[in-house]
Amino acid sequence: MIETLGELVVSLLIVAGSGFTLVGSIGLVKLPDLMTRLHAPTKATTAGVGGVLLASMIHVVVRSGEVSAHELLIALFLFLTAPISAHFLAKAYLHLHRERERNFPPACHGRDWTLLDEPGEELPREDRPQPPPRV
């Protein structure tokens, strides 16, 4: 009974995880430009791989009765590093195609975004962003 239940959970997690992965790749192909395309693999694919890793962990428990935390390491690593690589991809895209993306929200303190700002000129001292006052 408990083994059947475990197999059911593992099967559901495998189907859900690979379905999410497929949805992420469909989004990668269908969406119109890179800033929207970034959403699909970074969220759907990471969730899908997380589901497959969870299925693997539960499968080990069902199969041998031992608890294995190996897959947790991969899941933690992926969930921690997916936002970092997505951030770097977006930053490099903005850097390479700055003429395409001129409809940014405005940056504060009268300056452009750090990535697009021309270096060299410094603001006068009173216009610079001030650190918050100490309590």
């Binding site: 495998i14 790749s25 990668l28 693999p41 694919t45 791989v49 991969i74 992926l78």
Partner: peptide
């Protein structure tokens, strides 16, 4: 390429 690597991880685990 990054997504291919992530999908390969899922394939290896499967």
């Amino acid at each position: 390429a990054d997504t291919i690597v992530t999908n390969l991880i899922a394939l290896i685990i499967l």
